[in-house]
């Protein structure tokens, strides 16, 4: 235990943690900035929605190590190539959930909103997005957990982060460095998972919670 704490107190640890968080947060933001507008753009067309969802499904099948490894020959080593790869990894879950979430909104509700005289934009921002919010947010949560986990692999293409510690532990055959790296990554991932779970509940509009209770769910 002391050996692990010693590694955590080393000067380099803070920097590795910071790089890990930087990589994850930036990748997630870029992923959201690309996936959400695309989902909104294809929302009106069943054909393009299906295309977006299918591309998302294929994208989700690509192993994260494969995406990072693909980035190496194209963009080289370092932080930016890792960021590009991690952002690409964040897009599919958000795109799938946002597209399906928006499409799953009951057409009767959209009809009712149109009958009340709401414009297309008002229906989107006032009705469809709030109803789809929990599903969209679940996609962001999946992406976030995946990005934090995969940022560990950035070490293999020189992107830094906590994966550096695990690799250093293996290379030096030092169990403490290895454990310090593994445990800190695991804790970071679990915090992300639990934190986003909390946010997900916060993002569920009040009206939906009431409706769910009434249905006895």
């Amino acid at each position: 235990m002391n050996g692990i704490l010693e590694v955590l107190r080393r000067g380099g640890f803070g920097q590795l943690l910071l790089t890990h968080i930087e990589l994850s947060v930036l990748a997630l933001l870029i992923g959201i900035a690309i996936a959400i507008p695309v989902a909104l753009a294809v929302n009106r067309s069943p054909f393009w929605s299906a295309v977006a969802i299918n591309i998302g499904n294929i994208g989700r099948s690509v192993p994260s190590l494969a995406i990072l490894a693909f980035a190496l020959p194209i963009f080289g080593l370092g932080f930016v190539p890792s960021l590009v790869a991690l952002a690409a990894l964040a897009i599919p879950p958000i795109l799938i959930n946002a597209s399906t979430g928006l499409r799953q909104v009951d057409p009767k509700i959209v009809d009712a909103a149109r009958g009340m005289g709401l414009s297309g934009r008002q229906i989107l921002t006032g009705v469809q997005i709030p109803i789809a919010a929990p599903i969209i947010f679940a996609g962001i949560r999946t992406a976030a957990v995946q990005v934090v986990a995969s940022a560990t692999l950035a070490t293999f293409i020189g992107g830094g982060g906590l994966g550096d510690l695990i690799v250093e532990g293996f290379q030096r055959n030092d169990i403490y460095i290895q454990l310090a790296g593994a445990l800190s990554v695991a804790v970071l991932a679990i915090i992300t998972e639990l934190g986003f779970g909390f946010l997900e509940r916060a993002f569920t509009p009040k009206g939906l919670k009431v409706a769910r209770k009434r249905r006895g769910k």
Binding site: V145, A149, S150, T152, L153, I166, G169, V185, A186, A189
Partner: peptide
Amino acid sequence: AIPSLAFFA
């Protein structure tokens, strides 16, 4: 939620 490389390590 545990990242795979960490799990293996």
